[in-house]
Every structure is written in structure tokens, then in C-alpha cells.
Simulated assay, not measured.
Amino acid sequence: MATADRGPVIRLQGGPNDKWQYYEQDFLECIFRDSGLGAPDDIHSLQQALIDREQQLLELRRQLEERDDELAGPERPMVS
């Protein structure tokens, strides 16, 4: 009589309580990952994108400051 292949067998030393803790931890990790609350799979590319956006923001602020200075023009002395 052949048995169906059910995948790898996990044997835990502590008995049923350890088995349930293992399954509970695995289940919670799946929920956490699927919810989007966990760290994304490609954290390094997201960190690099964040650095790029911060640099872009600094450059745009610098350009805005230059334009504000150009629009203000030279200061004229107050005539009394």
C-alpha cells in the first residue's frame, strides 16, 4: 500500500505544544508578510529609492531658493 507524499516531515522534540507553537509562528509570519506590514522583500532597492528622492528634494529646494532670489531682484534703498 503506497502512501501519498505529503512533503517534508517536521519532528519537534517537545511534543504537541512545540508543534502548535511552530505552526502558530509560521501562521503569524505569513499573515504579517501578506499584510504588507513586514519588511519588503527588496528593502535595499527601496532604501536607495528613498535616498534618491531625498537628494532630488534637496536639489529642487535649492532651485526654488535661487528662483526666489531672482524674483526678489536687487534690493533698492528705501527712499524717504
Rank of each mutant, 00 (worst) to 15 (best):
D42P: 00
S80E: 12
R76M: 13
Q63I: 12
L37S: 10
Q21A: 12
F27C: 13
D18E: 11
L58H: 05
D5H: 09
D18R: 14
D5A: 05
V79C: 05
Q13L: 15
K19V: 10
Y23W: 06
V9D: 02
R67I: 11
L71F: 03
R76A: 14
V79S: 08
S35V: 02
I51E: 01
P40V: 00
E59M: 04
D5S: 14
L71N: 01
I31A: 15
Y22H: 08
I43P: 01
A39I: 05
L71Y: 04
Y22I: 08
D41G: 14
I51D: 03
R76E: 06
G14W: 04
E59K: 04
Q56I: 05
R61N: 15
G38S: 09
E59F: 03
L64W: 06
Q55L: 15
I51F: 10
P77D: 14
M78H: 06
D5T: 07
R53A: 12
D26P: 00
Q21K: 06
Y23L: 10
D34Q: 07
D69N: 13
G15N: 02
D52L: 00
R67K: 14
Q63H: 15
S45R: 02
T3A: 15
P8R: 14
F27K: 13
F27N: 11
L57W: 01
H44Y: 00
L28A: 08
P16G: 11
Q21R: 09
M78D: 01
Y23D: 06
R67L: 12
G14E: 06
D52H: 00
M1A: 08
Q21F: 02
C30R: 04
V79Q: 06
P77L: 14
L64M: 11
E70Q: 10
V79Y: 06
R6A: 07
S80H: 03
I10M: 08
M1L: 03
N17Q: 08
I10D: 04
A72Y: 05
S80R: 13
I43R: 04
E59S: 09
W20F: 02
Q63Y: 10
H44W: 01
D69L: 15
D69K: 15
D52A: 00
D41C: 12
Q47S: 03
R33W: 04
D52M: 01
G7Y: 05
L46F: 00
S45L: 02
C30H: 07
R6Y: 07
G73N: 08
L71P: 03
E75P: 06
I51H: 01
S35H: 05
G15D: 01
Q63S: 14
Q21S: 09
D68G: 07
E29K: 14
D41P: 11
Y23C: 10
E54A: 08
E70V: 10
L28V: 08
R62W: 02
A72Q: 11
D5Y: 09
D18C: 15
E66G: 06
Q25N: 03
Q48C: 04
L28W: 01
E59I: 01
K19F: 09
R67S: 12
E70K: 10
R76Y: 03
L12T: 07
N17M: 11
L58T: 13
G15Y: 03
R6P: 07
Q63G: 13
V9Y: 02
D69V: 11
